[in-house]
Design a protein around this nucleic acid. Sequence first.
RNA 1: GGUUCCGUAGCUCAGUUGGAUAGAGCAACAGCCUUCUAAGCUGUGGGUCGCGCGUUCGAAUCGCGCCGGAAUCACCA
Length: 576
Amino acid sequence: MGAEAFISQRASEGVKVLYGADIPASTLQVTATRKDFEGDYTLVVFPLLRFSHTSPAATGEALGEWLKSNCPEIQAYNAVQGFLNLSLSPVYWVRTLQEISADKDFGQLPPTGRRIMVEFSSPNTNKPLHLGHVRNNLLGSSVSDILKAAGNEVIKTTLVNDRGVHICKSRYAWMKRFNGATPESSGKKGDHLVGDCYVEFARMEKEDPSVMDEVHRMLIKWEEGDPEVRDLWSRMNGWVFDGFEQTYRALGISFDRTYYEHDTYLLGKELVQKGLDMGVFVRDDDGSVWCDLTDEGLDRKLLLRSDGTSVYMTQDLGTARRRFEEFSLDSHVYVVGDEQNYHFQVLKKVLSKLGFPWADQIYHLSYGMVELPEGKMKSREGTVVDADDLIEKMYNEAKEASAEPGRLSGVAEKDRDKLFRTIGLGALKYFILKVDPKKKMLFNPKESIDFNGNTGPFIQYTHARIRSILRKAEDLGLDASVDGGVVLSAKETRLVKLLAACPSKVAEAASEFSPAVIANYSYDIAKEFNQYYHDTPVLKEEDKCLLQARLTLISTVASVLRRMMGLLGIELPERM
RNA sequence: GGUUCCGUAGCUCAGUUGGAUAGAGCAACAGCCUUCUAAGCUGUGGGUCGCGCGUUCGAAUCGCGCCGGAAUCACCA
């Protein structure tokens, strides 16, 4: 193999072998690290070995032999093509199972001492939430939980876009064409009623473009604090908030803190002055202020209009500083669609130019759009998938699927409605979260979201079956325990290995801000368990020790699944 | 044109800190319910990992160049 660097890694086995980089061909340095289930590394350093083999394969074999005799816990086999596959012995995995099952907080990583703010949802009070917002909400909520599980303190926030020209449009249409309709009088959810106003305005503008002038006058009145305009504005916003609240509750979304743009839109102006003083911004002849980022491969960015008013960027600069300082944040995650990639690139650069050390602790969790088979959702063409409708549709489909023979065994009549919600929502959340956030995703409204295969209900079902076995075991007076005297089968060993990977999966999901890591990991466990379960009877096992070990194993599978799906905001029912 | 991202089975997606024969699900076909819940399990078919060159003992993975697609580059937010 010569003197080349030669690295083999088997993360899933928890063992890493390193062939030294600048070591003469006749010698070889071996370092093996064992990845504990806590996610720590136990370093096992082997002495410098001397081999005279010229081919990597021969070296691998010799190394395997050496490991077998000197470190029995580690098994080496199949040393071909110059690298070594190492695995830990079954005894190790029995110990691991014992430790995992005893750890009530398995999967919760130790505190990092870091405080992270996650901003997501950030709706505007003009229209109801649609499928795109659902992806945003689910991502933000799940990533927050994942960051918490990774040991961080997390503050969930949202910034409600409740002011501006576009908001005035729906208010204007309401005044002109809705005869004083309210959510009560119309029987409509508040956000949907206001959404109708917004759509109506588009029609009005088409008929007579001059209505825009009226809207601008309205905005000026709003900024002057005109009581009548302000009153209508806050009244209609109230309707929308009530509507959002219902949707959030249905989705299981909550925030620790809610910001409103009418409170924050003036922030950031003082930073413009600071930038000018520092010489990193320039003022043009017309009075407008810019930041030149052409050196960075970007463009000039406007920060203050010539009339002295601020823009979106100005506000974001200001709110970022306020939040970092007010909460002593270590990091700030913004869950915002990928159409704003450029905006956040610029935001970080400008903050960095202003000398804020935390500028590079801003992370834009950029996610792709949800598209329909015929392309993007367009409200004008009525192809928008409404969040409330979708939730209701999923409920109905869960109900329908549950009507199949053999289902709902042991589910009490009074619990069924809630179960249908849990299954429908589980299918929806899993469907959205299993996809890598940065990829755009396809949703076909004509095809329902599946309940078979790699889906939320599949994992829910797996859990329900385990719980069913455990209930029966309890009735039989059996308890779970495991001692070192048990020998696990190959399938059982595989399951324990998978379970042991949990902390590192949580860490990976947190560092990549990706619930998809958790979703796919949960699926792997459920898939592996179903294969195991199919041909390994648990309750019929006559060997008491083995029976108890199996009960321990499956209850650990259930609890890891519960924790992982909890990070996705998905509930796992006891029966279904 | 600049920046960022994506391209893996018919479809939806994993796998991307370089490793063995690239994996699931859906769809198709063939099996398994006197046995802990068949929303499950087993099997068959299905791949130039967009293309090319390079680095390497070894590339879906890294580099460069193409091709195709998306977003963005507003005195909008």
